[in-house]
């Protein structure tokens, strides 16, 4: 992998407005972070499967999506076997969703929309720093 490449995050959300907001927020607080947004989880999967593409450091995943929802994505994502952090970013404050997310050990965090500066830096700080230390 190209070590000089900028760190990258994925946003998977069927709501384009939500993706737009997230992009605008990250651009503002971390201008050097690469951002890719997907309105369909399948597209994100295909992107991850392609070895030529740069892998993201973290994936922000919405749960409530048509066709392939967040849980479907997690099941497929597990099969690929990539070591990438997944953070659930959803408008649902439903406790059953939270519990389900906690049980899934590939999901590192559960963030209720909207994403804030504090939440983003809190989530990404650890591995961005560890990346730097390498």
């Amino acid at each position: 992998m190209n070590s000089s490449a900028k760190p990258m995050v994925f946003f998977i959300d069927d709501d384009p407005l939500s993706n737009k907001f997230n992009t605008m927020l990250i651009r503002k607080i971390h201008p050097d972070v690469e951002i890719k947004t997907f309105t369909k989880a399948e597209d994100a999967l295909n992107d991850l499967k392609d070895d030529n593409n740069q892998k993201p450091e973290v994936i922000f995943l919405d749960l409530n999506m048509p066709v392939m929802n967040g849980w479907d994505f997690m099941a497929e994502f597990k099969k690929i076997g990539l070591d990438i952090e997944v953070v659930v970013l959803t408008s649902s404050n439903d406790s059953s969703d939270k519990e389900k997310a906690e049980k899934n050990n590939q999901i590192k965090d559960y963030v209720v929309k909207p994403l804030t500066k504090n939440a983003f830096t809190g989530v990404v700080k650890k591995f961005f720093r560890s990346k730097d230390e390498e």
């Binding site: 407005l17 939500s18 927020l25 408008s91 929309k113 909207p114």
Partner: peptide, 21 residues
């Protein structure tokens, strides 16, 4: 309650987010 927690909250959180920008 499902509709409120999933669907009503979704555009509302967008509004909240954009307002912060």
């Amino acid at each position: 309650s499902y509709i409120v927690s999933h669907n009503v909250r979704s555009p509302l959180s967008n509004i909240k987010g954009f307002l912060s920008l």
